[in-house]
């Protein structure tokens, strides 16, 4: 197991030390490390920095985060395929793709992040100065203390484990397709950072459910169903009954919880996911529209077209034409 101790923050003074710990060096915005992973840093102005990571770990890896500069909040979007856990104080959470894939952590808190060998991490960490979040919270009348009381009663620090919205998930997946480095990527990365922040702030102000308060088993079951729906996007919609059975819940409980956790009903979620996948296939230009509509088990082409248009605002034909 490799153990490193490091610090993060919106000011990038932690970089040289971090690179050194990894046994690598800084090259422009990249950190070149011996594990051949991609690590890319971009300051996005106004006290915001982004850290893009795409690494496959060959050995267990333990990162101890002790921040020297504590005046920031980190948003960690973590899409790890494999096993990754985060420990702080007296609790431990699984923070990979199918668990809590978004953690919001105050710079004051020291954390232990452990990734198992063989995991592939794709993630984006956004460091924001506290003053920015606070001014926003004031404007929107969000009482952060109240939200955070559950997790941390004794100190006024923020720590929250959450699932990113599906919207954010796809924004990140889109970024992942881009070639890293260069001015175009910088624009896209900075753009993505702003979009993610916006989505998160929006979620804060509209969605009051706190994921950590949901029963752990129920949550895992719902996420499993979500995963099942994503993996079976090409097939027809499984019935609510079937899914409720899979999740070991009653149908009504399943429907309510699914809606609470993912933000949409199973059917809407399934259809959106289908359309997103269909769009990706269209982008590749390997299949015709009717082939795709068949592939995703739409009853006919016109139904696919109308759904596509409803969701994206333009027909698949025009979409292909203007790519």
């Amino acid at each position: 197991m490799k153990i490193i101790e490091h610090s993060f923050g919106p000011d990038l003074d932690w970089l040289p030390h971090y690179a050194e710990q990894l046994g690598g060096k800084i090259d422009g915005n990249f950190i070149i490390a011996p594990d051949n992973g991609i690590r890319y840093i971009l300051p996005c102005g106004e006290g915001i920095s982004a850290f893009y990571v795409d690494v496959t770990y060959n050995s267990d890896f333990h990162k101890i985060q002790k921040n020297r500069d504590t005046d920031f909040i980190g948003l960690y979007y973590n899409l790890t395929d494999g096993e990754a856990t985060l420990t702080a104080r007296d609790f431990m959470y699984n923070v990979s793709r199918w668990h809590y894939n978004l953690s919001v952590i105050d710079g004051l808190i020291n954390t232990d992040y452990v990734v198992k060998s063989g995991s592939r991490t794709y993630g984006l960490a956004i460091f924001i100065k506290k003053s920015i979040i606070e001014s926003y919270a004031k404007k929107e009348n969000i009482v952060i203390n109240q939200i955070e009381e559950i997790t941390n009663p004794e100190k006024n620090t923020i720590i929250r484990f959450d699932r990113m919205s599906y919207d954010s998930y796809y924004i990140l997946e889109e970024l992942h397709k881009q070639k890293v480095g260069g001015p175009i990527f910088d624009f896209n990365l900075a753009g993505t950072v702003h979009l993610l922040i916006s989505n998160y702030l929006r979620k804060l102000s509209t969605n009051k459910i706190i994921l950590q308060t949901v029963n752990q088993t129920d949550l895992n079951n719902i996420i499993l169903i979500q995963k099942y729906l994503i993996e079976h996007a090409e097939e027809t919609f499984p019935s609510i009954k079937q899914m409720a059975d899979m999740a070991n819940m009653s149908e009504s409980k399943f429907k309510i919880l699914f809606r609470k956790i993912t933000g949409s009903t199973p059917n809407v979620f399934f259809m959106e996911n289908k359309l997103i996948k269909a769009k990706e296939l269209l982008e590749e230009k390997q299949y015709s529209i009717s082939q795709i509509s068949d592939k995703f088990h739409f009853t006919n082409n016109s139904y696919f077209t109308s759904k596509f248009k409803e969701y994206y605002g333009l027909s698949p034909k025009i979409f292909i034409k203007h790519l």
Binding site: A190, G191, L195, L196, I197, S198, N199, L201
Partner: peptide
């Protein structure tokens, strides 16, 4: 108020 950062991102 999340509009501003969204527009910036876009």
């Amino acid at each position: 108020s999340s509009f501003e950062s969204y527009l910036k991102g876009i």
